[in-house]
Nucleic acid binder design. Sequence first.
DNA 1: CTGTTAGCGCATTCAA
DNA 2: TTGAATGCGCTAACAG
Lengths: 353, 353
Amino acid sequence: MTATIHDVAQRAGCSIASVSRVLNGSAAISPALEARVREAIRELGYRPNALGRSLKTKSTRTVGVLVPSFTNPVFAASLAGVEQAARMAGYDIILAASDYDRDREPEALGALMAREVEGLVLTVADAEHSMLLDSLDRDGPPYVLLYNELAREGRAAVSVDNEGAVADLVGRLIGLGHERIAFVAGRFRASDRSRLRHQGYLAAMTGAGLEPLPVAEVEFLGDEAAFDRDLAALLGRTAPPTAFACSNDLLAIAVMAALRRAGLRVPEDASVTGFDGIAIGRQIHPSLATVETPTHAMGRAALELLLDIRTNRAPRATRRLAHRFRPGGSLAQAPAAGLAPSPTLPDETERKT
Amino acid sequence: MTATIHDVAQRAGCSIASVSRVLNGSAAISPALEARVREAIRELGYRPNALGRSLKTKSTRTVGVLVPSFTNPVFAASLAGVEQAARMAGYDIILAASDYDRDREPEALGALMAREVEGLVLTVADAEHSMLLDSLDRDGPPYVLLYNELAREGRAAVSVDNEGAVADLVGRLIGLGHERIAFVAGRFRASDRSRLRHQGYLAAMTGAGLEPLPVAEVEFLGDEAAFDRDLAALLGRTAPPTAFACSNDLLAIAVMAALRRAGLRVPEDASVTGFDGIAIGRQIHPSLATVETPTHAMGRAALELLLDIRTNRAPRATRRLAHRFRPGGSLAQAPAAGLAPSPTLPDETERKT
DNA sequence: CTGTTAGCGCATTCAA
DNA sequence: TTGAATGCGCTAACAG
């Protein structure tokens, strides 16, 4: 049985109130008593029980974090930012993952709320039509959405200009002479970010008088074969795309691999762009042209905003952080106009793993 | 003010004991009362407060997780495994990160323990000489080490055969004719895994009668310039290495990029191997030859072992999960640079491009 | 400056 | 089958 405040009091020969006082510095204590208490604490290896404290003070100093996945470097980096900011503010983090499954969101949130978290940082599948958020607004702790963008006022969020950034990116592709530009997206159902980025693509294409191609919605976590199949519809066109704008970096890297399997060279035969700016995008060859988003800072900002909202020091509004274009070797001039890329023969004989 | 058990009792016209009973099914209740209670719960939107419950039952159904970083895909995947297993077992997770800083470990653990976690899953910097673990053994919740391997008996751990796997990997390099094989490691101080993997390298080299090269300890999170500088000592040798065994995949990918900057081709001029088997290693070009470790499963196994230890259903021992070699394009025959080594049979497919 | 006391929300005796 | 009472570990009045 671990020591309680009573044990300390008894050993120090004082009341539990005095122990509590030296613990929290909530009132003046005579140096002599304080010394005795500290000694007793040391001897007993006493550490205050946060449960008892929280029950009394109604302050758990805990925030809940719900993300779709930890495996995605973007969320991992954000989580690190949240963690760092939380630690600095003396908060602990309770974690939950939805695995991109919106049906899992409610129960995950329930678990967090039962723990009496003082606030939430969440990335949900669909922020626009979420009853979840409605119920949180009604009776829940304050929350800050991370990555979700939403029109509705009175909701706090930390995000980037997804639509504008992709529009800019696609604009660059167009500037490089690309006309047949495809957009490759993760499943929309699981990500409103993906949808917003697609909007940016559409805006840029129509704005330039180009015809958007049908979006390729690929299964993010599927295997190679499924991926190739999803992409085949695009590559099999009589005039295949010369550029692939992808809704995130992981997808872009997968697309680059798929193009390679199809015998196409990046960027000579096709350009590829990503979104997010994950670190590894710089290391690969060719390096990935993308939009860098301040993932870590966004996590930090989300937690700081949350804390500010709690103390009425900030309104519930969307805070957009700056992104920037990151050049990369995956981006090049469109191949000679009018010519479809030569359908190089698959050199599968060379590869076998 | 959110509803408490008293509010429910009052509304249902009964005692809080009865409400508690329907909540936990801990005793028989008349159907009529139960219906009234459930109705009251619904009307009030009541959800039990986990704090009060935990304080009473001394069961928090919470485990603490301490990892060096979330950004490393290996830990991210493990964390996902831990989370999944925890959720299935009805446990919540409190998170802490040490940022590879061993001085941060104690306070992080302190925060977790104050929360009365029922167990811990941790990856520490140095499991062999950790006072931290000693103090946990003395008075702390049960814990399971993840990735840390240690000789000491009576400590629970989930790991892989780091030393053996690298020895095997280096053996393959040797089998491909490589003799000047370098080992590139993250800073040893921050990772005993790195040390163990280096041991495997040494064992394989000396076992084959080859002379180990001085280890290149690189700053894992440094910039490109620092990285190139750290590697310069190796590349500047009169007879530079023809193969680079790296202590993890991220490092290996960074080394591939550095070699490229130095004007060397992988694998024609130099082979590179990693360790961990992160997913992205398959997508890059050339694909990364490495040791696949079951990161997600290890996280799951760690939590399951923890729960089993709690209930005395398992001893505190090390559980090693199986790894396996993953072939990749980063691995090739040693360049025929004027050497005539003993004729060894390559067991891998020849690669050319 | 210090001690006594009253809960925080809940599960759980013990009676009825 | 139900209710009253106790206490988990702690902080915060309120006295002294």
